[in-house]
């Protein structure tokens, strides 16, 4: 049921990670992605994974939540790992018919699986500890330089804010309309794909009509509150880099340096 989907999955809290500036979190996430792809051996990968686990613990959010997000991509991880298992060089560990598992293949499979899992964990940290509005806000500010190239950064951010606000509303509405049509005997659960798509028309048309009505109302409400685009606009929340951010940056730099050292001085992986 749509009602239980919370978008962005933000879990309010007061942990160190929660207190980091959203801009720092986005930038560090990007840096993390770059570095985990740079990791060349298990030592470096271990360091990055350890880092992600420590960050996860530092958020003080129930581990169940992270397991949930891992479960979602479990299939993807398994399939990717499986594919990697059969590609690679080095010692042959196992051979049957046309299947051949090599040391490199095994390494690749484990490497890929761990890498995806770590990425999912660290991305979950961003969405779990940062409110959607902080995220859009941070993105707006980080992308500000693009206004020089005529990119409508403020408008994009505003669209994102409104989308985040109205997705739950529309999900609930979809639920309601679906129930109403089902009560009139609409059959949405059986038949082939073609029939099912057709069965959605009685839901989609009312949904479009009501979205237009809502958009109209919202535009009026925004006008009433003197909305005039991004010009001359201030924000209640001032994003400020604090000592926490500096601390986060230093810790990250140490870990990233560790990855580079591992890559340079420890043996490369057989792939």
């Amino acid at each position: 049921m749509g009602r239980n989907i919370t978008l962005g999955q933000y879990m309010p809290g007061r942990s160190v990670i929660h207190r980091l500036d959203a801009r720092s979190k986005i930038l560090l996430l990007i840096a993390y992605m770059v570095f985990i792809f740079m990791a060349q051996n298990f030592y470096a990968l271990f360091l990055m994974t350890l880092a992600s686990l420590l960050v996860v613990l530092a958020t003080r959010i129930s581990l169940n939540m992270y397991l949930k997000s891992l479960r979602v991509i479990l299939v993807v991880v398994l399939i990717t790992a499986l594919f990697n298992l059969f590609y690679g060089n080095g010692k042959v560990l196992f051979e049957w018919w046309i299947f051949k598992i090599t040391e490199g293949g095994l390494n690749n499979a484990v490497f890929v699986a761990v890498r995806i899992a770590a990425l999912v964990l660290i991305s979950s940290v961003l969405t779990y500890t940062t409110s959607p509005s902080d995220l859009t806000d941070a993105l707006e500010r980080l992308l500000k330089p693009l206004t020089l190239f005529k990119v409508k950064v403020h408008e994009l951010a505003m669209m994102m804010t409104i989308a985040l606000r109205f997705i739950p509303v529309l999900l609930e509405e979809t639920d309601k309309i679906m129930n109403a049509q089902k009560a009139r005997g609409a059959d949405m659960e059986s038949g082939n794909v073609f029939k099912r798509v057709k069965a959605l028309i009685p839901v989609l048309i009312p949904l479009f009509v009501s979205s237009f009505r809502r958009a109209n109302d919202l535009a009026m409400a925004m006008e009433c509150r003197c909305y005039n685009g991004g010009k001359g606009r201030t924000r209640m929340k001032v994003l400020r880099f604090t000592r926490t951010d500096l601390f986060g940056l230093i810790v990250s730099l140490v870990i990233f340096a560790g990855v580079i050292l591992c890559n340079m001085y420890l043996p490369q992986l057989v792939r």
Binding site: S131, P132, S133, T161, I162, L164, R165, R213, R214, D217, L218, M220, A221, M222, R225, C226, Y227, N228, G232, R233, T234, R235, M236, K237
Partner: peptide, 20 residues
């Protein structure tokens, strides 16, 4: 249809922000 932001206090701030 008249609440713009996804968090109560940010919505309340919306008008003031527009006024600078």
């Amino acid at each position: 249809n008249q609440i713009v932001a996804g968090i109560v206090e940010e919505d309340v701030a919306f008008g003031c922000e527009n006024l600078g």
